[in-house]
Structures are given as C-alpha cells and as structure tokens.
C-alpha cells in the first residue's frame, strides 16, 4: 500500500567527511580525558559522544532523510531513556 519514497543517495564524499570527523572527535575526547576538569569530565565525554552518535545517526543511519515518524519515535525513546536515568536519581541523589 505504501508508496516508495524517493531514495536518497548519500555520496561517498559525505560519508568520508563524516568518518574523518568521527575520528577527529575520538582524538578530541581522548585529549579531553587527560585534562582534569573535575566533575565536568564525564559531561564533556558524554557531550562529545552524543555529537559522534548524532553524526552516525544522521548520516550513516540516514536519519537526516527519514520521515517525521521516525524522528519523533527516536526522540521518544531517548526521552524515555533519559527519564529512566534521571528519575532514578530522585532516589540516589537524596538518599
């Protein structure tokens, strides 16, 4: 029943650039871990990981060209994951 959406082709060049960016950020995150920022370190590491993850998601997994349904549902999943972790801290942080 569904119509085939026009398939978007991601060029090798784009993929290559994304790959280089990912490698660069791996270097950055290793470098960042050598600087002692106290409690900030883990947040910096997570931030860089999130950016890397977003690149994989958007280009390698083609999320950039997907429908709104997939965007929404993916964000819902991430939201639920965030709830799982953060709401547990209502207990852990105040015990």
């Amino acid at each position: 029943m569904g119509h085939q959406p026009s398939q978007h082709i991601i060029e090798y060049k784009t993929l290559g650039l994304v790959f280089i960016a990912l490698l660069a950020m791996t270097g950055v995150t290793i470098a960042a871990s050598t600087i002692d920022l106290g409690k900030l370190n883990v947040w910096v590491a997570l931030l860089i990981a999130s950016v890397k993850g977003s690149l994989v998601l958007l280009y390698f997994m083609h999320m950039k060209y997907e429908s709104r349904v997939l965007w929404l549902s993916f964000l819902t999943t991430v939201f639920f994951l965030a709830i799982m972790i953060s709401f547990t801290f209502w207990d852990i942080a105040f015990r």
């Binding site: 709830i83 709401f87 207990d91 852990i92 942080a93 105040f94």
Partner: peptide, 18 residues
C-alpha cells in the same frame, strides 16, 4: 505511566524525596 514506577517502593528504603 512511565514516570511513576517507584510508588511500589515507598517502604524499600529509598530517599524521602523520591
């Protein structure tokens, strides 16, 4: 329904804030 799970655990020893 996904935000309320710990109401099964009031007597478990978790924090009063929770």
């Amino acid at each position: 329904g996904s935000l309320v799970w710990a109401h099964h655990m009031y007597t478990s020893g978790m924090s009063d804030t929770a």
